[in-house]
């Protein structure tokens, strides 16, 4: 699970070692990556919204 999160984080940054990417893709569970990606996207939105609301007070 942790490697999935790490890989998705790296993807968010747009960086990933070729070696690691290869491993991820050979792991063959795209679903896990997609779900993690969506959750983390939602998380990002949450953080930004939280900051915005906090700052606007």
């Amino acid at each position: 699970m942790w490697t999935v999160i790490k890989s998705v984080l790296a993807a968010f940054f747009g960086v990933q070692k070729e070696q690691q990417r290869r491993e991820d893709f050979e792991q063959g569970r795209p679903g896990a990556f997609i779900v993690t990606g969506l959750v983390m996207a939602a998380f990002l939105v949450g953080i930004l919204a939280f900051v915005a609301i906090l700052v606007s007070r």
Binding site: F13, G14, V15, Q16, K17, E18
Partner: peptide
Amino acid sequence: HENTTVEVIWT
């Protein structure tokens, strides 16, 4: 065609 350090820096 890749260099993770550079990519992290310019992100």
